[in-house]
């Protein structure tokens, strides 16, 4: 008995449409965020994260409507990331029905933004997203650095130090993506995940690299994550959320079924 570890499917949204080909049996519209969110809710998703990858800021307003639509019909927590740069952006998303916003590059550009957002809206709704990559050589003490621009641009910031700092600034949660693993299906970077999770007092969501259900369980058991986020293994219907939870439960992890 106790708090369940969470499974969070992540949807990329471009100009109001879910991209990267979500595949469900008999879905009417594979790009409709509301329909997909409803499916994930029915499968037992603990939360849903939307990542707005819309390139043009002119089209950003579309995401607000997406969140409004989803939040009117799906009654589990929703997180929105991508393009959250000002307190106004945070407010707009929360008012639309998001429970949390995920802040990434804006925090690196100006760390105080995280403090201001947490003070204004409460720690519980501020997620800091960290994209990290290993920068040590074999045999050296492990070290991970924050990268921006989809993993192309190094910042020189140590990921563990940064996580501690964001914790101190009032972040309510960390969304950690191991950029060397993202899209590889080789599993989370467990060493990185564990280092961050042990460095902070707030929950950590592990992301990047999930290819099997065992990877999800390892993120919790070995990476010490509080939640796991994945996209493709759920979108391409390789596994349902429920299958993932049954698997985690069989490995001794407490889940909501």
């Amino acid at each position: 008995m106790g708090l369940a570890k969470r499974i969070i499917p992540c949807l990329d949204v471009d100009r109001g449409r879910v991209v990267k080909g979500v595949k469900f049996v008999e879905i009417r519209d594979a790009g409709d965020p509301v329909e997909i969110a409803r499916r994930y809710d029915q499968q037992g998703a603990d939360e849903i994260t939307f990542l707005d990858i819309t390139a043009s800021s002119d089209d950003r307003e579309t995401m607000v409507h997406v969140v409004e639509q989803v939040a009117s019909q799906v009654f589990i927590p929703l997180t929105v990331g991508g393009g959250i740069r000002t307190l106004g952006d945070v407010r707009r998303m929360l008012n639309a029905g998001a429970d949390k916003v995920s802040i990434n590059t804006a925090a690196i550009a100006r760390p105080e933004f995280v403090r201001e957002a947490a003070e204004r809206f409460g720690n519980q709704c501020i997620v800091v997203a960290i994209d990290a990559k290993a920068v040590h050589q074999d045999g050296e003490t492990p070290r991970w650095e924050i990268f921006t621009h989809g993993g192309r641009k190094p910042t020189g910031i140590d990921a563990v130090e940064w996580a501690r700092r964001m914790n101190a600034y009032g972040a309510g949660e960390i969304l950690l993506t191991s950029m060397d693993r993202d899209g590889t299906k080789r599993g989370f970077n467990l060493e990185l995940t564990r280092a961050i999770s042990e460095a902070v007092t707030i929950p950590v969501i592990a992301s990047g690299g999930v290819g099997t259900l065992d990877h999800l369980a390892e993120g919790i058991l070995l990476g010490k994550a509080d939640a796991v986020l994945a996209a493709s293994i759920f979108h391409f219907a390789e596994y349902t959320i429920e299958q993932a939870k049954r698997h985690m439960q069989a490995r001794g992890i407490e889940v909501r079924l």
């Binding site: 708090l3 969470r6 519980q124 509080d226 939640a227």
Partner: peptide
Amino acid sequence: RDPRTGERLKVPHMGWNQVH
């Protein structure tokens, strides 16, 4: 800390928990 395992419990208490 979880008295059963000694593991640290994160705060905020965030996620799905049982209500007795």
